[in-house]
Amino acid sequence: MTFKLIINGKTLKGETTTEAVDAATAEKVFKQYFNDNGIDGEWTYDDATKTFTITE
């Protein structure tokens, strides 16, 4: 399955996707992406659209 990440950061904005077997696996991938890029904020997940959103 394809999961999308929408980034609404102070310095970084955009979208990316990842292929994962489930939302929990995608969450781990995206959290690592947050850490690697110094993004910290509030994030949500919409199961209907398989979209994670992080807002700094």
Rank of each mutant, 00 (worst) to 15 (best):
E42V: 14
G38K: 11
Q32Y: 06
F3C: 04
F34V: 15
M1R: 07
F30R: 00
D40E: 13
M1V: 10
T2K: 09
G14N: 08
V21G: 06
T11R: 06
F3G: 01
D36F: 12
N8Q: 09
F30I: 04
Q32A: 12
K50D: 01
F3W: 04
D22W: 02
T2A: 05
T44H: 10
K4C: 08
K10A: 11
Q32V: 07
E56C: 14
E42C: 10
V29N: 07
N35K: 14
F52C: 01
T49D: 03
G38E: 10
D47Q: 09
N37F: 15
T17H: 10
I7Y: 10
K10V: 14
D22V: 02
F52H: 00
T16K: 13
L12P: 03
Y33I: 09
A48C: 07
F52K: 00
T53Y: 08
A20S: 06
E56R: 04
K13Q: 10
L5F: 09
L5T: 02
E15A: 07
E42P: 05
E15M: 09
E42M: 12
L12W: 14
G41S: 04
M1I: 14
K13P: 06
A23Y: 13
F30P: 00
A48S: 11
T25Q: 12
K4Q: 04
E56L: 15
A24E: 11
T11F: 14
Y45I: 00
N35Y: 13
T17G: 03
F30S: 00
K31S: 05
I39P: 04
V29F: 15
V21Q: 10
K28L: 11
G41R: 04
T11G: 08
A24K: 10
A48F: 09
G38L: 11
I54W: 15
W43G: 00
K13L: 08
I39T: 05
E15Y: 13
K10R: 12
D46K: 02
V29E: 06
W43S: 02
I54S: 02
K50T: 03
E56A: 08
F30G: 00
A20Y: 03
D47P: 13
E19K: 12
A48D: 10
T53C: 06
F3K: 01
Y33G: 03
A26F: 02
T2R: 12
F34I: 15
F3H: 01
E15W: 14
D46Q: 03
T51G: 00
G41M: 11
L12E: 06
T49M: 05
E42D: 11
N37D: 05
W43N: 00
I54T: 03
N35V: 14
G41P: 04
K50V: 03
G9K: 10
K13S: 11
A20Q: 07
T55W: 11
I54Y: 14
I39C: 10
I54L: 12
I6Q: 03
T16S: 08
G14E: 11
E42F: 11
K10N: 10
A23N: 03
W43F: 09
E56D: 07
W43H: 01
I7H: 03
F52N: 00
Y33D: 03
I54Q: 02
F3M: 01
E56Y: 12
I54N: 01
G14M: 14
K50I: 02
D47L: 04
E27W: 14
I39A: 05
E15R: 06
T51W: 01
Y45R: 00
N37C: 15
T11W: 14
K4F: 13
T16F: 15
K50W: 05
V29W: 13
D46R: 02
L5R: 00
D47M: 07
A48M: 10
F3N: 01
G38W: 13
T55Q: 06
G14T: 14
G9S: 11
V29C: 07
E42Y: 12
N8S: 07
V29T: 08
G41K: 04
T44W: 07
D22P: 01
G9H: 09
T51D: 00
I7N: 01
F3Q: 01
D36V: 11
V29Y: 14
M1Y: 15
E19F: 15
T2W: 11
K50E: 02
A24G: 06
N8H: 10
T25R: 05
Y33K: 06
I54D: 00
K28I: 10
T55L: 06
I6H: 04
V21H: 09
E19W: 15
K50N: 07
F52D: 00
A48W: 07
D47K: 06
I39K: 04
G38T: 09
K10S: 10
I39S: 04
E19Y: 15
K13T: 09
I39D: 04
Y45L: 01
T51F: 01
T51K: 02
G14K: 13
N35E: 13
N8R: 12
N37S: 13
M1S: 09
T25I: 06
A20C: 07
W43K: 00
I39G: 06
G14Q: 12
T18D: 01
L5E: 01
I7A: 02
K4E: 02
D46L: 02
N35Q: 14
V29M: 10
G9N: 05
T51Q: 02
F52R: 00
F34R: 07
D47E: 12
D47V: 09
K28V: 08
V29S: 05
T18Y: 13
A24M: 09
N8F: 12
D47A: 13
F34T: 15
F52P: 00
W43R: 00
K28N: 07
A24S: 09
M1H: 12
E56V: 15
F34L: 15
D47F: 06
Y45S: 00
E27L: 15
K28P: 01
Q32P: 01
I7R: 02
A20R: 02
Q32G: 07
Q32K: 13
T11C: 15
L5D: 01
G41C: 08
A48E: 11
F34P: 01
T18I: 15
K13N: 09
E15H: 08
L5H: 00
T2E: 06
I39E: 04
E15F: 13
T2F: 08
G41Q: 05
